[in-house]
């Protein structure tokens, strides 16, 4: 698989490691009433879709940036690549490209 890095251009996926579903960017509020349950769902439960999947990739053997890669899990086609920093700043300002908050 080739991941088209927003800054570095097309890179072999071997240079990256995968962390998992990009929902891991949406950390629950630890002070909330139901924080225990929310963290259980955050840490352990996954949508695990067959099709488009937003996931966190780390460019370990490159510029050490975190990317949000949208990839089709049925065809392995990479559909979209964003810097995770851009995604989280978007989330903070309310433009949220991230998934639904719990």
């Amino acid at each position: 698989m080739i991941i088209d890095h927003p800054l570095l251009g097309p890179r072999d996926s071997q240079e990256f490691v995968l962390l998992g579903d990009a929902s891991l960017l949406n950390r629950p509020d630890w002070q909330a009433e139901n924080a225990g349950h929310a963290f259980y769902e955050y840490q352990y439960l996954r949508d695990n879709p067959a099709g488009a999947h937003r996931e966190l990739w780390y460019h370990e053997m490159g510029d050490r940036s975190w990317l949000v890669v949208t990839r089709d899990t049925v065809t392995h086609e990479v559909l979209k690549v964003e810097l995770a920093a851009d995604v989280t700043s978007g989330m903070a300002s309310g433009v949220a490209a991230g998934r639904r908050p719990k």
Partner: peptide, 13 residues
Amino acid sequence: DMYNSYAQRGNLP
């Protein structure tokens, strides 16, 4: 292969 997949085929690395 270390990435989520339903493809029943993997990659060369």
